[in-house]
Design a protein around this nucleic acid. Sequence first.
DNA 1: CGTCTGACGCACG
DNA 2: GCGTGCGCCAGAC
Length: 119
Amino acid sequence: MTKKHRQNLMSDNDDFFDRVYSVTRLIPFGKVTSYGAIAAAIGSPGAARMVGWALNKSLSQTPFVPAHRVVNRNGILSGKHYFGGSNTMQELLENEGVKVVDDKIVDFKLIFWDPKSEL
DNA sequence: CGTCTGACGCACG
DNA sequence: GCGTGCGCCAGAC
C-alpha cells in the first residue's frame, strides 16, 4: 500500500503528518492527550512513535501546532527537551493552567482529552 | 533495498 | 511497581 494509495482512501488526507497536525490542533486549551491516543485516532494504533516524530517536525510548521499538549501515556513531558532545551514545554502548559511537577502532568487523567471523542 | 532510528506502548518477569 | 524486550510505521542513509 503506497502513500498515494492511502491518499485515495482518505480523500482529505495529505500524509500521516498532516493528520497528526490536524488532530493535535483540535486539543482544547488547557487539555492534553497522549501520542497513542492520537495514533489510534488517525487510524494507526501502535504508531505512537510516528506521532512524536511528526510533532517534532511540527515545531517548524505553520499554523502553530500545540505539540506541548501531547505527552506520553504516563503524562510525562517526554518531548520537553525538543522545545529549545529549556523548560519551554512546561511553561507553555502552566500558562494554560496545567500543573506540571517533575516533568509530569498533575491530574493527567482529569484533563486528558480523547481525540476519538471528537470524531 | 537492508538497517537504523525514534517526543511510544504493551507484554513479561 | 520497575526494568527489559519487542512491535510498531515512516523516513534517513
